[in-house]
Design a protein around this nucleic acid. Structure first.
Lengths: 202, 202
DNA sequence: GTCTATATGTTGATAGAC
DNA sequence: GTCTATCAACATATAGAC
């Protein structure tokens, strides 16, 4: 099995020479490749190029690694609610702003958000993260309802379904968007918004 | 932890009295709740109301259980390609037919398709299933390209992105649609198609 | 069709040397 | 910052009785 090659950010001399950030960033890649539960500290060690026990010099536990990774996704998502543009103007304007900035966070922090979106809530750490995610989701759901009541969004689809469809479309970005692919983040953002609001029909 | 209560289809007398189908159907629910890798034969046994070893009376291995479950999703998906309506008429007509019938399969066989869509390709069984899934996906991707060349779909979004956005929207249904919820399958199908083709804007 | 007991490997994590 | 050696817990799966 090929491992994830990547020089640690602060590489010095000897061999790997990892620090906490390089461990975290590689760990998240490996978690996403095989799934968090299917990734053992052994395979993670192989991908880091160090031994299992050396990981514990940088991080106290596998769960803590997950916890730190999820923060990398949740903190920027939670910050979107603080932006004044999310609370001013018509519901339609606020909604489009939040949709676009959510997409931008998903794309910029893709590996971390991927991990978040695949959680099943098996441990206390996962359940805490899922609760924070639900809080973020609720804000967006309220904006959709607002835009629909305001008359900016079609009313022949019920608000819950509208919200779910938008979430589904946006969240699926993490499953296929690659920063090194042919599309720029701006193009993906525009294309997703274009389909959701105006449709694909010519 | 609450277990998944469900009487086996052919319940007779004593206690559980499972057959292969009831084991499979409950197993898939548990797999989806905790993730396949995170589900041990022990937790599965608890949910079935029998002991670990009793499972092996019905099924030769955990991997075989997964294999049978994935067939339940893949066979109907593969069958869509055989339908004459998928190969006749304009590309736009064929595309809408395949989109709608794909949605219907996702909704009807939701637990099995959910399992399929979450695979990471960790074992040979998973990789074989993913290859079959990719073959199904390629057919739909070709239809999108056809419809775009034909002029039925807008040309300002590149075909790969168009395809991905549609897959993302459709596939996300398994994450939130519940047959016992407020929406009928027909409504979900119509709403998803409405957003993708005509957009949510009023 | 189910059970108890058990074989055999893998897991996350620790101890202590270099 | 890394290693080897080790551990208890838990994994999948089997043997054989009822």
């Amino acid at each position: 099995m090929p491992t994830i090659a990547s020089k640690p950010s602060g590489a010095k001399r000897g061999r790997p020479g990892h620090d906490q950030d390089s461990v975290l960033s590689i760990a998240v890649q490996v978690f996403n490749k095989h799934g968090y539960d299917a990734t053992s500290m052994g395979t993670l060690a192989d991908n880091l190029g160090i031994s299992k026990s050396a990981i514990y010099h940088h991080v106290p536990s596998k769960g803590d690694l997950l916890d730190k990774a999820l923060d990398e996704a949740l903190i920027p998502l939670e910050a979107l609610g603080e932006d004044p543009r999310a609370t001013m103007g018509t519901a339609a304007e606020r909604l489009e702003f939040v949709l676009r900035s959510t997409i931008r966070v998903l794309v910029e922090r893709q590996p971390y958000v991927t991990l978040l979106l695949r959680l099943r809530g098996n441990t206390e750490i996962e359940r805490r993260a899922l609760e924070r995610r639900r809080a973020v989701d609720r804000r967006l759901a309220d904006l959709v309802v607002g835009a629909q009541q305001e008359g900016s969004l079609r009313a022949d689809i019920d608000p819950r379904t509208t919200t779910r469809l938008m979430f589904g479309t946006i969240n699926s970005l993490v499953e296929w968007y690659r920063p090194d692919g042919p599309s720029t983040p701006q193009q993906v953002e525009d294309n997703a918004i274009a389909m959701m609001l105006d449709g694909l029909r010519a």
